[in-house]
Design a protein around this nucleic acid. Sequence first.
DNA 1: TTTTCACTTGACTAAAAGGTCAAGGAAGGA
DNA 2: TCCTTCCTTGACCTTTTAGTCAAGTGAAAA
Lengths: 190, 190
Amino acid sequence: MVNLESFCYNHLMKKDTREALLDSAFNTFYKHGFQGANIATILNDVGINKGSMYHFFKSKKALGLAVIEERIERNLVNKYAPIKSVEELFDVLCSAPKTLSYGCPLNKMSQEMIYIDTDFQKLLSTTYGKFETLVQIILERDGVENSELKAKQIIATYEGALMIYHLNRQEEEFVQVLRELEQNIFKVVD
Amino acid sequence: MVNLESFCYNHLMKKDTREALLDSAFNTFYKHGFQGANIATILNDVGINKGSMYHFFKSKKALGLAVIEERIERNLVNKYAPIKSVEELFDVLCSAPKTLSYGCPLNKMSQEMIYIDTDFQKLLSTTYGKFETLVQIILERDGVENSELKAKQIIATYEGALMIYHLNRQEEEFVQVLRELEQNIFKVVD
DNA sequence: TTTTCACTTGACTAAAAGGTCAAGGAAGGA
DNA sequence: TCCTTCCTTGACCTTTTAGTCAAGTGAAAA
C-alpha cells in the first residue's frame, strides 16, 4: 500500500508546501530582514513558482506575519516552555550564540518593522508578551519574587548582550554578562 | 556686506549639501532601515537631484557608511562624552524613550546590516567599541571597579530594555529596569 | 576677462521587485 | 466517468529602484 501523498507532482507532499514556504521565509527574513528579503530567493529555495506561493499567502506582508505567528512564536514556545528551573533558563540563554546565527529573530524583526507597519507592530508586541510570560512562569515556578520585573530584566539583558555578541563575537563576554545578572538578581543580601 | 555663501542657487549654502544629505539620510535610515530606505525620498527631502548626491557619495552604501561615521558615532560622543557621573549616566539612559523615536540607531543598523555586508559590520563593530569606551570612562572616573564588564552590562540592559520599550511603550517599565540595574550594580553587600 | 573647478540639473537606463493571471494537472467524490 | 476543488505552472505586468551621464551654472582664482 503506497502513501498517495508522497506521489505529488512536485516531489513535495501537498500539505507541506506551505510549511516549506514558512521555513524558507523564516530563514531568509532572519538573515536579510523582511524588507531586504527577496521573494524569488525563497521560491527558488523551496523549488516552487510564484503563483503557488500567492495561493497560500496573499502578499509578502501576509507571509511575514505568518512567519511571526507560526515560526518565531513557535520557536519561542518550543525553546522556553520545557524549561523547569531558573538555573536551566540561564543555561539556555547562555547557549544563544551557538543556536541563533543572526541574533534574536524577534528582536531583529521588531527593530525593523514596528515603525513601518502597524500590523507587524501589533503582532510582534503580542509575541513579545508571550515570550515574557514564558520566562515569568519559569521564575514563578521557582518561587522567585517580583517575577514580572525580573523577567523583563532578564530578557532585556539577554537581548542587549546578544546584540553585542553579534558585533564582537566574544562568547565569553556574553556569558559573563548573563551570569553576572543571574548572581545579582538572586544574590541574598545578608 | 552680503554673505556670498548664502546666495547659492539651490537656496542651500554650498558646503551644507553634504551635511543636509547626511542629516536626511540618517533620519530616513533610522526610521525605514538602510535597505528599506529610498534614495528618492532623501533627495526630495533635501531638495536636490540625484547627480548632486552621487557627487558626494559614490553609492547608497557609501552614504550608509558615512551616516554611521558622521552621524551615529557623532551623536554618541555628543551624548555621552559630557557625562560626569554614574548618576548622570543613568539619568541620560533613562531619558532615551523621549529622544530616540525609533530605538537605538546603532542597534537598529547593526541588527540589519552586520550579516549582510562586512564593511557595515566592521564599522558598526568599531562604533560600538567607542560607545562602550565612553561608558567605561564614566564608570572609571567615578571609581567603579570592573568597569569593562559593568559597561557591557549597562549597555546590554539599556539596549534590550529600549527594544522592549518600543514594543510596549511603557516608559515606567523601561526606567524601572534601568534603575534596578543601577542599584544592583552599585549596591554594597555588607 | 577668461579659465577652472566644484557642484547641480534632469532625463535616461537597466535591473529588480512584488504581484497577476489564464491555463493545466492531480486527486477524490459523486 | 465526469466534475469539482485544490494546487501549480510560467509567462507577463507594473512599479520602483539604484545608478549614469552629458550638459550647464556660478564663484573664485588667474
